[in-house]
Computed example of a mutant assay.
Amino acid sequence: MEDTDATYVAFVEAAWQRHLRLAILLTGDRHRGEDLLQDCLVRIYERWRRLARADDPHAYLRRMLVNNNVSLWRRLRRERLVADPPDAADRSADRHPDTELLREALRALAPRQRAVVVLRHYEDLPETEIAAILGCSVGTVKSQNARALAKLRAALRTPIFEQNR
């Protein structure tokens, strides 16, 4: 049992930051992202003996994050929770002001579109893998991505972004 626990701890330590960033991008909020990741890691621990033998437990965790986030936004579809103001520790001195604009634009996307954009452009997954994770067709992934990018372009049409073209 100790060996199983040690491999699980090593997995979490190796993957925490990568999957935390994914969870934050999926949820649009640091605290909700942390909660989502912790919930998924607890569920993974319950199945760790089987998952440790699997090819890629990181892919399993990524799929869990997406699926649990989709389940959460389906339950809370009618509620719009207001996030607490970000902690001062969450902001680095060298953060570019456009980063906040991009985050706000991502938060404005529908959760499924946000998931497609994050998995495609942040995680750099192929469309076929995204379709498998989200349980939809490749065509749906392509159309959701195109619509999301159009919304992001429209939201980010500011003088700052226009200069960089």
Results as ranks from 00 to 15, higher is better:
M1R: 15
D5R: 08
A6C: 06
A6M: 03
Y8L: 04
A10Q: 05
V12R: 00
V12L: 02
A15F: 03
H19M: 06
H19L: 06
L20Y: 00
R21E: 07
R21D: 10
T27D: 07
G28F: 04
G28P: 08
G28I: 07
D29T: 10
R30W: 15
R32I: 12
G33W: 00
G33D: 09
Q38C: 07
Q38E: 07
Q38F: 01
D39M: 08
C40S: 08
L41Y: 01
L41N: 01
R43Y: 00
R43P: 05
R43L: 05
I44H: 05
Y45L: 11
Y45D: 08
Y45T: 07
E46A: 14
R49V: 15
L51R: 03
L51K: 03
A52V: 08
A52M: 03
D55V: 13
P57K: 04
H58A: 14
A59F: 00
Y60I: 09
L61K: 01
L61V: 02
R62L: 11
M64G: 09
L65N: 01
L65I: 02
L65C: 01
V66T: 01
V66Y: 01
V66S: 00
N67W: 00
V70N: 01
S71K: 04
S71Q: 06
W73S: 14
R75F: 15
R75G: 15
L76Y: 11
R77C: 14
R77P: 11
R77S: 15
R77Q: 14
R78Q: 13
E79K: 10
L81A: 15
V82F: 10
A83S: 13
A83T: 11
P86Y: 03
A88I: 08
A89M: 06
A89E: 06
R91Y: 04
A93Q: 08
A93S: 12
D94V: 07
D94G: 10
H96D: 15
H96M: 10
D98G: 15
T99A: 11
E100V: 13
L101D: 12
L101Y: 07
L102S: 11
L102T: 15
R103K: 12
L106E: 13
R107T: 14
R107H: 11
L109M: 08
P111S: 04
Q113E: 06
R114D: 02
R114M: 02
V118M: 10
V118Q: 07
L119A: 08
Y122E: 06
E123N: 01
L125T: 02
E127S: 12
T128N: 13
E129D: 07
E129M: 07
E129R: 05
A131T: 02
A131C: 04
A132Y: 09
A132W: 08
I133R: 08
I133A: 11
L134C: 11
L134E: 11
C136R: 00
C136Q: 02
V138P: 05
V138L: 05
T140A: 15
T140W: 03
V141G: 14
V141M: 12
V141L: 11
V141P: 14
S143H: 02
Q144W: 01
A146I: 02
A148D: 07
L149A: 14
L149C: 14
K151D: 12
L152A: 12
L152Y: 06
A155Q: 02
R157V: 11
P159K: 13
E162T: 12
E162C: 10
